[in-house]
Design a protein around this nucleic acid. Structure first.
Lengths: 169, 169
DNA sequence: CAAGATACGTCAGCCTTGTTGACATTCCAA
DNA sequence: TTGGAATGTCAACAAGGCTGACGTATCTTG
């Protein structure tokens, strides 16, 4: 567990010490706070929460996605998601269209109003991300992405990779 | 906003496109889920939540820390933290010692039982982090840390850097 | 065509963890 | 001695998770 550089490893494994890992864990914790801080402020003004942000984000990213697919991605129960979606539809940010091929499905789309809020949120979040990327540099960004990807559950990695559109990576 | 490589930037700024930033945002989202998944399972068995994990972690990391300091780090209200601490003390995982210099302060320590749970949680989380680090390699880990650090609020970065003990980075 | 499976919505009730506001206690420091 | 700091605690509330149960279209399959 507590590593001294073994005969096989030497300097090359120092980044796997418990202490380094602890720092990584705390870095994730503190960084995630920063990551959500700016959108949270905007959301609070309008009486929405992170759950609404997540729904808006993934509908924006994959317009026409179904409720079931969203459930998969977000990993919450349909009751929980439904409460959020209902509110977004009542408020006219999201619109559900009956599927043409399978009429049981509801295909979700943002309205202009929904797109506007989503943009405000993602602009704020992207600004922070952009600043961090710029400060760290392209090399660091590549490493950042590699570690995050390796940290995901395989099923989540599938969803993540599935989001490559034109211009993805 | 939507960048084409400008005359000044060229290839070097492609990592700052909106699409790259969106992928970074989703990577954070999906990775954080993986990051908390293993401890969450252990916590659920014992009817604790993430809030308890966070408290245990930061008490373990800085034994003797005060309630006020913990409030600072965790960024929640004292009522919220108090509920969690009370439960941990009732269950005999955490012990509060009256300060010797300033007797208003409570210095928090883990009991053996608390240390045991904290270790189980952090072992699980470290295992995942170690696997990710190993898969990505030392170079990537360095980048990972740089980006996360740049993403923190300055005040959180202070707390983060303050946690360097012997062997930190 | 009938029966079962699927996609979705919804009601009811519960829990954790966050919030605000108010107030008490204890103790340090000027 | 008095003001303010550090802490604890009560009450009430909200967001957003959860489970369980049930209803209704709609599709699919035997």
């Amino acid at each position: 567990m507590a590593e001294r550089p073994g005969p096989q490893g030497g300097q090359g494994l120092l980044f796997l010490t418990d202490e380094q890992l602890r720092k990584g864990i705390e870095a994730m914790f503190f960084a995630y706070r920063g990551f959500t801080a700016d959108p949270d402020r905007i959301l609070a003004e309008q009486d929405y929460g992170r759950a609404h942000h997540r729904a808006l984000h993934f509908i924006q990213r994959s317009p026409g996605t179904t409720v079931g697919n969203l459930l998969d991605i977000l990993g919450v129960t349909k009751q929980s998601l439904n409460r959020v979606l209902r509110r977004l539809m009542e408020d006219g940010l999201v619109e559900a269209r009956v599927g043409r091929e399978d009429r049981r499905e509801r295909h979700l789309h943002l309205t202009d109003k929904g797109r506007a809020l989503e943009k405000a949120l993602s602009d704020a979040q992207r600004d922070r991300m952009r600043a961090a990327y710029r400060a760290a540099g392209p090399q660091a960004v590549q490493g950042f992405r590699q570690v995050l990807e390796a940290m995901m559950d395989p099923e989540m990695r599938r969803h993540f990779e599935a989001s490559d559109k034109a211009g993805g990576r």
